[in-house]
């Protein structure tokens, strides 16, 4: 029984449970076709940018912050890669490297403003969101461009039955998990969860905060590269919806907004959960509701309502599971 309690109180529980629930419902509405490679590839490769964005957001939230500029970061990286490779003839590999550096730089700007000007992260990233969005418009004013076909075929393909983009997620996750074994990882949580204690323990609050946002920027850059591979093009407005979605993913995954508690596992599960919700709504309509002709005129509203209701239920249950965990909180 204590094993179960230990499991229930670990970080990310709510995310895993929600994911499990979503899988079950999905199988019900979709049928056995759920278990096909094509299906997994569809869901996972399309949502990989969101999953990676959720990882980036987790790092910031663990540090008791929030990053509203993730979407703009992804957009700017996407436009930079396309501009460099299409307009200036860079090789796609070099353009991607430049994009990654740009993402890191963006995170560093955020980190600098938040750590050293001490502006609340909500407002600071709200401000930088428009700056980076505007820059993306300058870099690539209209959607267009292309990438070599091997890039998007590789991204959208499978190896050994696993969608290739999943490997990217695994690499990013491993990097963070490795970092969290080192002092810096622990410090990010410490500063998030118990700032005064961390300070008296000699940790430089500003430096840690700066690193957290910079790291989040790099990872968002990876998400930008993924979106470039996914869409095989550039669009100065591609990343707008990712921001709110990745925040939802983090909350669904059980990471506390107050900082210090949580983990990327839950956020990854939360992001996949969101992808499955879209899938569930799609198949619910495609397989069941299509028979009701009267539904057609309201279909679009009902889709929205359904999607939002499921997400809200998910958020509520995520917070509910959090309450139990308060007893088992581990302060690092």
């Amino acid at each position: 029984m204590s094993q179960v309690r230990k499991f229930l109180s670990s970080a990310g529980t709510s995310g895993y449970l929600l994911l499990l629930g979503a899988i079950v419902i999905n199988v019900v509405v979709q049928g056995s076709s759920f278990f096909s490679t094509a299906n997994f590839t569809s869901i996972l490769s399309v949502n990989t940018p969101l999953i990676i964005a959720a990882i980036a957001q987790t790092i910031v939230v663990l540090n008791r912050g929030i990053d509203l500029s993730v979407g703009s970061n992804i957009t700017l990286v996407n436009t930079i890669v396309i501009m460099l490779s299409n307009k200036y003839g860079w090789s796609i590999e070099a353009a991607c490297a430049a994009g990654l550096i740009a993402g890191t730089f963006i995170g560093a700007i955020n980190g600098f403003i938040i750590a050293y000007f001490r502006i609340p992260s909500l407002l600071a990233t709200f401000a930088t969101m428009s700056v980076f969005g505007g820059l993306a418009l300058i870099v690539l004013p209209t959607p267009g461009g292309s990438v070599p076909s091997y890039m998007y075929l590789l991204y959208g393909g499978q190896t050994l039955g696993i969608p290739n983009s999943v490997f990217i997620v695994i690499v990013v996750a491993l990097i963070w998990l490795l970092l969290s074994k080192y002092p810096i990882g622990k410090h990010i949580r410490a500063v998030g969860g118990a700032e005064k204690s961390a300070y008296t323990a000699g940790i430089s609050i500003a430096k840690v905060r700066f690193i957290a946002f910079t790291l989040a920027g790099t990872i968002s850059g990876v998400a930008g590269l993924c979106i470039t591979a996914l869409t095989a093009s550039g669009d100065p407005k591609i990343g707008l919806s990712i921001t709110l979605n990745c925040i939802a993913a983090v909350i669904l995954g059980g990471t506390r907004l107050a900082g210090g508690w949580g983990g990327i596992g839950g956020s990854v599960a939360g992001a996949v959960f969101l992808g499955l919700v879209n899938n569930i709504v799609f198949f619910f309509f495609n397989n069941f509701l299509t028979h009701f002709s009267g539904i057609a005129s309201r279909a679009s509203f009902i889709q929205q309502l359904l999607t939002n209701t499921i997400i809200i239920l998910g958020l509520a249950s995520a917070v509910f599971t959090q309450r139990r965990k308060k007893r088992a909180k581990i302060a690092t």
């Binding site: 403003i113 502006i119 407002l123 700056v131 418009l137 300058i138 004013p141």
Partner: peptide, 14 residues
């Protein structure tokens, strides 16, 4: 233009 406005708005806010 619009891009410039967005950037200036963000920087000014910061």
């Amino acid at each position: 233009d619009e891009a410039g406005r967005q950037i200036i708005n963000g920087v000014a806010l910061v």
